[in-house]
Design a protein around this nucleic acid. Sequence first.
RNA 1: GCCUUGGUAGCUCAGUUGGAUAGAGCAACUGCCUUCUAAGCAGUAGGUCAUGGGUUCGAAUCCCGUCCAGGGUACCA
Length: 596
Amino acid sequence: MSIETIIQQATLEAVKSLYGAEVNEKQVQVQNTRKDLEGDITVVVFPFLRLSKKSPELTAEDLGRYITNAVDFVDSFNVIKGFLNLEIGKDYWLDVMTESYNNLEYGVKQASSDSELVMVEYSSPNTNKPLHLGHIRNNLLGYSISEIVKANGKKVVKTNIVNDRGIHICKSMYAWQKWGEGETPESSGLKGDHLVGKYYVEFDKHYKAEITELVEKGMAKEDAENQAPSIIAARELLRKWEAKEESTIELWKTMNSWVYEGFDVTYKTLGVDFDKIYYESETYLVGKDEVLRGLAENIFYQKEDNSVWADLSGDGLDQKILLRSDGTSVYMTQDIGTAKMRFNDYSIDKMVYVVGNEQNYHFQVLAKLLDKLGFSWGKDLYHFSYGMVELPSGKMKSREGTVVDADDLVEGMIKVARDMSAELGKLDNLSEEDAENTFRMIALGALKYFILKVDPRKNMMFNPEESIDFNGNTGPFIQYTYARIKSVLRKAADKNISISDKLVVESVSVKEKDLLKRIALFPAVIKEAGDNFSPAVIANYCYELVKEFNQFYHEHTILGESDENIMNFRLVLATSVGNVIQKGMNLLGIEMPERM
RNA sequence: GCCUUGGUAGCUCAGUUGGAUAGAGCAACUGCCUUCUAAGCAGUAGGUCAUGGGUUCGAAUCCCGUCCAGGGUACCA
């Protein structure tokens, strides 16, 4: 049980015993004591004043005396205004340290066979262009919350729904047919997804030019957009695809396979993975069947032009189209099919969709539709809605060439890590392979931390000019501290200093106690991150812990300490800090280098 | 128009279920490498928490209004 809970219970008892009144747990506010004041844990007594009918000071005195007597861990107390500050004895802190020292999984709950099964959908790329910075945020968030949910004792299935069909891929296919001259990833030296993306851009260029030309000839813009030769050709390809025309399917398969090879490289670089991948080409017909069933059961209705609609006006939403007048599927239809397949494949207790906040409305509607179709899990789906990544120039737009490509970004960061490392004269005695691996860890640590430390719900700003920092509140700062801890432990081992968790110390200093307070908080932090689906909670926690350790590290010697007990204590403390930050950063998908 | 999310230091961001004097990093300026790794540490400066009201012992936090910005809004995904 955490110290906060113990104090909370004790306060409840105290109020009951002293004033004869029951109070709600929520009225007991327990918090960490301000740094500059005496004490460790503070109880706010204002809520009890009307029960005690005394001044805040006297009420706090009453409670302080009671709690000090009742709880072994509490050594003493002081009162400032309406705040009761309790001092926790060293035994409690030593217990926390021993636990976090011995248990590498400290703070983490293990899943059991009857644990809840959570499916997390993330990434969900289109196959017509490479991944960019926005996808990076999606992938990192999806991977990280999967890890965090696991750490909260749930079973997790990571899934990816690949949007491999539709007009967008046909655009790339058409452009490649027309202007590609048989170019392949091998012949061009381009990564597969970049090659296909190149033809998507090529398509758009010609398409735009055709529209301009038609408009100049006096056609209305809307008509021009529908009658430009390129778009007509792309639609023709889509029709052939749906009719399973052999050469079209063949081309589609080939180009998609190029893209998948490219994506796999990017996923591997980012360190994300999936347990199960779905393809919309395999789910959209399932969705269509479900919609037709809904129509037969009068859940949906059909208009004169044969399009199928859902009326959600009774739920405070609008009319929503589910099948076009030509009978083809829309995005929503596919999501219904995908959901059905998933719930057939797994006994999912909770479904989480990691999708940008521009689709908030879509998922509101999806939940309602699934519910109407009789899927019990429909209304419980959780849309993990994250904000966009903005550039100083505004939104990322592929047409305007303002997208930040995922592969380029990572490549650039590795280069900066390498250069900076050389400048600082680090890692000179490592093998080239080990050094390269470390640069990669640092670069990705910087990128991942930069993205995950901000509240996922908010839009975030990324300035490519200034790029991502390696100093201050960053991933590398945390990795650096970790590497130094490892270095101390290596040196201790070299000197044959054995570390024991049988701790014999007279007292715990203020700085040491601050560190132990943080460590004691770790299980609660994991829970909070899990409850709120927020990697940022973990990131900011790790930073605070590391910052405090760095201050400690500069003020105290560890290996040079003359008192053997104190040296042993500090080695255990350093190890505990190392364990906790490694675990925390791993929940963010960030690897920790032994040296840097 | 309607729905929705946000606005905290020059910039990027934290800020626990309403609690004590508003917190970091970057950028600027000052110190500190013969001391376990200076990707570090210590310090200076920088704030009308968009704005006006309300709720109460107490508001960046909760409620209402206003301004500004982002997103969505029926055959794109």
